[in-house]
Write a protein that binds this DNA or RNA. Structure first.
Lengths: 258, 258
DNA sequence: CGGCAGATTGAGACTAATCAAGAGGAGTGG
DNA sequence: CCACTCCTCTTGATTAGTCTCAATCTGCCG
């Protein structure tokens, strides 16, 4: 699809970088002259306010973009929630690439608009919901990787503190909310970072989760930017960030709990 | 700047529409095959949740965009907060226009990214701030049109209920917050929709307003989309939405209060 | 002047933050 | 292999902040 010239000029400038959990990818206030496509792993967009507090605004998964091309300073930082990989390209390469192949503007815009929408969704999920509902809602919004025996299983890649921040509550409140969901037998906690959805319908009620979002058709995370050179692991973020030994332990648990 | 052909095909399809306060511009869930540039007045982006509650997410002023071009359904509605004007163009015209003149992609992206950033800012202003601080912060974020005697004066175009929704609180709490700001002599209320900033510094402290935002340089609302055919009233949203009789009454008030 | 809708003010209920303390888990060094 | 430390997670009691409900007030229109 790409012209030879554009492709050559472009792919030379492309850099894949591995990152590790906790690492800072982009520092707040920096001018980052490059843009990155997340290939695997999970990033988090955080903001440090003047009083030193850290706020997690959004998570960025495979196929989504970080950085900006307009030479503006970053109003937020980007940190790694898990290990993973980003594919970077410098601003000039990016811009000249887009200029040479305007048809890719459409894809770029689409992903940008999608992340914009996701930011709006993030606000909406906060509104008119108490802490319990927000937690339930978030759980339902995660890609439910099926565990052993087709039970929906969710890996919480974020720390309690980070997830609490994302959901705009304290870690203590998040903890209480999770255990309230357990008491009402909507979920179980095989491990502190694993959530097993026991009763999907009850969880929906508790989270005031709209019917039309159930299929995930409204705001699918899976319209990844069609990066020409990188295969994006979009479908299985679960396995991508799940260490093998955990999977093993998990299946043991599943067998034991039956 | 525009090629004759593109210009001709484009300007024919452009439609200016006046809107009145309270009017619904875009219905939630609609597929709107067009995009609009706000010329004057103020729009609000609202979401109706399943339980019937209405949430104001954002306001859209002159130079900013509404609608989308990707044929997707709207996750939110757009309503008029004041009287004003939008300049519409159908999706096909828009897309072919951008295709013909790729250099405008940059501007389009820029405005989109800006609104994206604004959405993020909207989240941040909520975080780690109580109701009083949110109100103070919002006031400082408004374009302070100077009133009589160079006193910063702000017109609240939104109803109490809408503004409260935007700031994620109840109308009652908003009201109390405003009056608390008055008690601490940071502001005055010449009329229920007019705020006079008496002590800017105190208001900043009460709103935890960062220093670097004071100049408004960080996130200026004034990088309007350079619409080729419409003159955008970007600088004076105040006067644009201020009925003449109010202005007159206001100056009388200013004279009387000295 | 009466009616109406939005804005204001007040009192009580309830949610979530804060402060404090205990439990679990991973890594380190002897 | 075990004790020790550090850090995160969890749990409990208290407090502060907002929401809710209700009543009153205000400006506006016919």
């Amino acid at each position: 699809m790409l012209g030879d010239q554009a492709l050559a000029a472009f792919s030379v400038r492309t850099t894949r970088t591995h990152f590790h959990g906790g690492e800072t990818i982009i520092t707040q206030g920096d001018e980052v002259g490059r843009i990155g496509v997340v290939v695997s792993g999970l990033l988090k967009i955080v903001v440090f306010t003047e009083d030193g507090a850290e706020h997690v605004l959004q998570t960025v998964g495979p196929g989504q973009l970080v950085g900006n091309t307009d030479g503006q300073r970053h109003g937020h930082a980007v940190e790694a929630a898990t290990d993973g990989m980003v594919c970077w390209m410098p601003r000039e390469a990016w811009n000249s690439f887009l200029k040479a192949r305007p048809e890719h503007y459409q894809a770029f815009l689409s992903v940008t608009l999608q992340q914009y929408q996701e930011a709006q969704q993030g606000v909406i999920r906060m509104r008119g919901r108490n802490t319990l509902q927000r937690v339930a809602f978030w759980l339902l919004d995660q890609k439910p990787a099926r565990g052993t025996g087709n039970v929906p299983l969710i890996r919480i890649a974020l720390s309690r503190r980070d997830l609490a921040s994302l959901l705009d509550m304290t870690a203590e409140t998040l903890c209480r909310a999770l255990h309230q969901l357990i008491e009402r037998s909507a979920i179980r906690l095989p491990a502190s970072d694993l959530v097993e959805i026991v009763d999907m319908e009850r969880l929906r009620q508790l989270g005031k989760y709209p019917r039309d979002r159930i299929a995930g058709a409204e705001n699918p995370r899976a319209t990844p930017f069609p990066h020409p050179f990188v295969q994006v692991a979009s479908s299985d973020r679960f396995e991508a960030t799940m260490p093998p030994e955990r999977l093993k332990r998990l299946s043991e648990f599943g067998a034991a709990s039956r």
